[in-house]
């Protein structure tokens, strides 16, 4: 697999509003890509197209050698390969942390309850929350819930992880604990596409930064573009971000 994720001239409209106006980029296996940009620049939409939470009007999206924009796509197979973490955590409130994590592996991969619990424990260790295994989501802080959401996604052994502004609902302290988990994951070789407003994270963890503006990839490159932006739009964006 030479390319984990590839977007080529992707167009997406909500009604009359064109949100993505020809987006193209590639992500290599093991690469960590940060997508930055203003609200409304299309960055979250682009991310959601990758695991077909949104259908696109035209263009090519290839994920782990699958054509996402193909009517014959095996959607569930795609979603086993691609994990996603949302801004609002979206843990299942009626299930314990262990049950949240093992639900999909048990249903989709048919592992036993005992194996599911062991898997939950292993993934919780990865995010530093083993002691919360029998708690309910509402008993956890936002940062802890988000780390559980990451663990839940990892339990399906995805090949690509998508992060959709996962720290935007958290205060700086809780943001830090979530970002540390993500940085560890990045160092472990996970392919990650991270839509974020955390420039510090992009600088530290991203192999590549994509700046989206008005539905297109406006500027991209190594994290250096954050200190040395080429376009006036990115300069302007970074000046306002700090």
């Amino acid at each position: 697999m030479s390319v984990a994720v590839k977007l080529e001239d992707v167009h997406k409209s909500f009604g009359a509003v064109e949100v993505l106006k020809g987006v193209s980029f590639e992500v290599a296996p093991g690469e960590v890509v940060a997508i930055i940009g203003r609200s409304g620049s299309g960055k979250s939409t682009a991310l959601r197209c990758i695991n077909r939470l949104e259908k696109v009007q035209s263009g090519v999206i290839e994920v782990c050698e699958r054509q996402v924009n193909d009517a014959k796509l095996d959607l569930r197979a795609l979603r086993q390969d691609v994990g996603i973490v949302f801004q609002s955590y979206n843990l299942f409130p009626h299930l314990t942390i262990a049950e949240n994590i093992m639900l999909a592996p048990r249903r989709v991969k048919h592992i036993t309850r005992a194996a599911g619990r062991a898997l939950a424990l292993e993934k919780l260790a990865q995010v530093g929350l083993e002691e919360k295994i029998d708690a309910y989501p509402e008993q956890l802080s936002g940062g802890q819930q988000q780390r559980v959401a990451i663990a839940r996604s990892l339990a399906m052994s995805p090949r690509v992880m998508l992060f959709d502004e996962v720290t935007s609902a958290l205060d700086p302290h809780l943001t830090g604990e979530v970002l540390r988990v993500m940085e560890t994951l990045a160092k472990g070789g996970m392919t990650m596409i991270v839509v974020t407003h955390e420039m510090g994270f992009a600088r530290r963890a991203a192999d590549r930064v994509i700046y989206m503006h008005m539905g297109t990839v406006w500027e991209s490159g190594s994290a250096d573009i954050l200190t040395n932006p080429q376009t006036p739009e990115l300069q302007d964006f970074l000046a306002n971000e700090l």
Partner: peptide, 28 residues
């Protein structure tokens, strides 16, 4: 709706999403 979305993103089938995620919350 985000509950359904999260469950679908974990590769659960439509029926599994309904049974394991939506119905237990709807019953309350």
């Amino acid at each position: 709706r985000t509950q359904t979305e999260a469950a679908e993103c974990l590769a659960l089938t439509r029926w599994q999403v309904l049974r394991d995620v939506v119905l237990p919350q709807a019953i309350r």
